[in-house]
């Protein structure tokens, strides 16, 4: 019992679990853009960083309550998302991917050069406002919101665009408009995740938000199962915790991580839960159990 308590109150573990939550929020944003709407975004970390810096600056300079700076972080990211989305969402597939990747790199370089964000030295002195409870409240809200979106007229339009853009358009859906809306929500969620990150770490550095981080978030979404919320949760949890569990292999950690990415894709190209409708499986299981009674 005491051992359990000591693990539960160990600040390091709490930090790790909180980080999983923060990553999960960002991943859910990308889930909407890539998993549901089918649009490549290789610059998601940039939106996380925009939200992080914007909210941190709002807190530091305007002394607003955290909820408001979190909102500001989300809105700043969404605004940039829409500004990028307008011209670039006309591009398809890999072209959109490389454009978002380029945007992400530009954002990083801008943060390195800006005075107000502390440049390459980073931004310190952010008050610690987020905690594990707040993070998981936002996680639950985001998951709930994503489920609601997926089962709505709006969400069906996004899925239609993913499945067949031309057919979607002939069903009366304006693809560009809906893609921009999906981008706005997805980047908003990324910005919120960034705000939580900023007020948790109390320090931001542009190098934490490079394309490596963008691809890490993409990994969460793809390896878990593209288009599936349980898949995104599973992917984020496994991949965020993997480095912790791989600690014993020390310097071989990233070697194994890279090799795992390749093997996972080869054996489950649609992700761990790809093509599995978790709700249907659960329902089937319940029905079978009731039938047995």
């Amino acid at each position: 019992m005491e051992a359990v308590m000591s693990i539960l109150t160990n600040p390091y573990y709490i930090q790790v679990v909180t980080m999983v939550g923060i990553s999960l929020i960002a991943a859910l944003g990308l889930h909407l853009i890539t998993g549901i709407t089918g649009q490549f975004s290789f610059g998601h970390a940039a939106f996380v960083s925009i939200g992080a810096y914007a909210s941190a600056l709002v807190t530091i300079h305007l002394h607003l309550p955290f909820v408001l700076s979190m909102l500001a972080g989300g809105l700043a990211a969404a605004l940039c998302g829409v500004l990028l989305g307008f011209p670039s969402l006309r591009l398809t597939g890999d072209y959109l991917g490389i454009t978002t990747l380029g945007f992400g790199e530009i954002v990083r370089v801008v943060f390195i050069n800006l005075k107000i964000t502390g440049g390459a030295g980073g931004l310190a002195g952010i008050p610690r406002e987020s905690n594990i409870f707040l993070v998981y409240i936002v996680v639950v809200l985001t998951i709930w919101g994503m489920y609601r979106i997926q089962n709505s007229r709006f969400g069906r339009a996004l899925v239609a665009i993913r499945e067949d853009e031309i057919a979607a358009e002939t069903m009366g859906i304006n693809p560009l408009l809906y893609k921009i809306k999906a981008f706005a929500i997805g980047t908003f969620v990324a910005g919120v995740s960034g705000s939580l990150f900023a007020h948790m770490m109390q320090y931001l550095n542009p190098s934490d938000f490079g394309f490596a981080r963008s691809f890490e978030i993409l990994n969460f979404v793809v390896l878990g199962g593209l288009g599936s919320i349980p898949g995104t949760i599973l992917g984020t949890a496994i991949l965020s915790l993997a480095p912790e569990f791989l600690r014993f292999v020390k310097e071989y950690r990233m070697l194994i991580y890279g090799a795992l990415m390749v093997t996972m894709m080869i054996f489950r190209p649609n992700g761990l839960l790809g093509g599995v409708d978790v709700i249907r499986v659960l329902r089937g299981y319940r029905n079978r159990r009731e039938a047995r009674r």
Partner: peptide, 13 residues
């Protein structure tokens, strides 16, 4: 996306 992720894995490796 699958080969893309695989390519990233090779790259990290």
């Amino acid at each position: 996306l699958a080969p893309l992720i695989s390519a990233l894995g090779v790259s990290i490796f």
